[in-house]
Computed example of a mutant assay.
Amino acid sequence: MQVELAEERVFRMTDRFTLEHAEGRAWSKRIEAFGAMARVTGLFAQPKDDEFEVVYRERRLQPFWRLIVSTSTTYERARDYEMKVLPEVREVTIGEQVLPVVAGQFKVRGLESCKDETRRETLIDGLSKQVTPGLSAYLQHDAIEIDADALAAATAEGLVVVPPEAKASMVVRDVIAAAIGKIDADRVLEELVRVEAVDLYYRPVHAFRYRRAGKEAVVEFDAVTGEVRTGGATFEQHLGKVMDTQFLLDVGAETLNMVIPGANLAKLMIVKGMALRERRDPS
């Protein structure tokens, strides 16, 4: 089996809305953030602005993974084919083989040459670790490739960089395991697993925590899609902390041992880095 691993990359999505716009949109949802009772009360007596206090503002980068895995397997298998004939036929000669006819049909054995190919893109929420196809909407917007220094600079600017709950090795392991299916083969001639992309995306989110009558609630504004959501969360525990990208981006041969029991370098031809990048991006 040959396995090709793309280099891990990190992308930061571009803000499409200003902080002022985000705060204005979030403010319009402040009553809903406090639940159904607050909304019902607001129908009869509109709460005054001074009843709400913004106790915390957060600009954060929230993660999701994008992986592309393709497989190609070439193999052979022997199969018996049942062929129907007319009632008067008693036997059929093919080459030097004389094949008896039973119940109006005869069997001929052949060798099937097969090739199975698959390619799938998987998007995984960085916090819930769940496959989330809806994240594809973000890929329609601009993003720039960054490195550890750029993430550190974002932290210095006051952004909260939220680390994903799963490392690259974990998500690659799970996606490869799902891509490798069972093959009905007598002899495998070639197996190729190509991990074409292991990309960690960071999307910008603004969060505002309001206080009213001793209670607190959070409103989130998505700085890429413009969506406003109540009932969100904040991540003060990561404020000012620099993420260890080396810890996250650690895909290697040991990952394959998790997927393919007993795999080792003697059995696997592993290609990682520039050679694969040149294949998938010839420009």
Results as ranks from 00 to 15, higher is better:
residue 4 E to A: 15
residue 5 L to N: 11
residue 10 V to M: 02
residue 14 T to C: 08
residue 15 D to E: 10
residue 19 L to W: 13
residue 21 H to P: 10
residue 21 H to N: 12
residue 21 H to I: 10
residue 21 H to A: 14
residue 22 A to H: 05
residue 23 E to V: 06
residue 23 E to T: 15
residue 26 A to Q: 14
residue 27 W to Q: 04
residue 29 K to H: 10
residue 29 K to S: 11
residue 34 F to M: 08
residue 37 M to Q: 12
residue 39 R to A: 07
residue 41 T to D: 14
residue 43 L to W: 15
residue 44 F to A: 05
residue 48 K to E: 10
residue 51 E to F: 13
residue 52 F to A: 07
residue 55 V to K: 04
residue 59 R to T: 01
residue 59 R to F: 12
residue 65 W to S: 00
residue 66 R to F: 04
residue 67 L to M: 03
residue 69 V to C: 00
residue 69 V to K: 01
residue 73 T to E: 14
residue 78 A to G: 14
residue 83 M to Q: 03
residue 88 E to G: 04
residue 91 E to P: 03
residue 92 V to G: 00
residue 102 V to D: 00
residue 106 F to Y: 15
residue 108 V to A: 05
residue 109 R to F: 00
residue 109 R to W: 09
residue 117 E to V: 05
residue 125 D to G: 00
residue 143 A to D: 01
residue 147 D to F: 03
residue 149 D to I: 12
residue 149 D to L: 08
residue 152 A to Q: 11
residue 156 A to T: 06
residue 163 P to W: 02
residue 165 E to T: 14
residue 166 A to W: 11
residue 166 A to Q: 15
residue 169 S to G: 01
residue 170 M to H: 15
residue 172 V to E: 01
residue 174 D to Q: 07
residue 180 I to P: 07
residue 189 L to K: 07
residue 192 L to C: 05
residue 193 V to F: 07
residue 194 R to A: 04
residue 200 L to F: 10
residue 202 Y to V: 02
residue 203 R to C: 05
residue 204 P to Y: 05
residue 208 F to P: 01
residue 216 E to S: 06
residue 217 A to F: 09
residue 217 A to H: 14
residue 218 V to S: 14
residue 221 F to Y: 15
residue 223 A to D: 14
residue 223 A to V: 01
residue 224 V to K: 02
residue 227 E to H: 02
residue 230 T to M: 09
residue 231 G to N: 01
residue 232 G to C: 12
residue 235 F to V: 06
residue 239 L to P: 12
residue 240 G to M: 03
residue 240 G to Q: 07
residue 243 M to Q: 08
residue 243 M to L: 08
residue 247 F to N: 07
residue 247 F to P: 02
residue 252 G to Y: 03
residue 254 E to Y: 14
residue 255 T to A: 03
residue 259 V to I: 04
residue 263 A to P: 06
residue 270 I to N: 07
residue 271 V to Y: 06
residue 275 A to S: 08
residue 281 D to V: 14
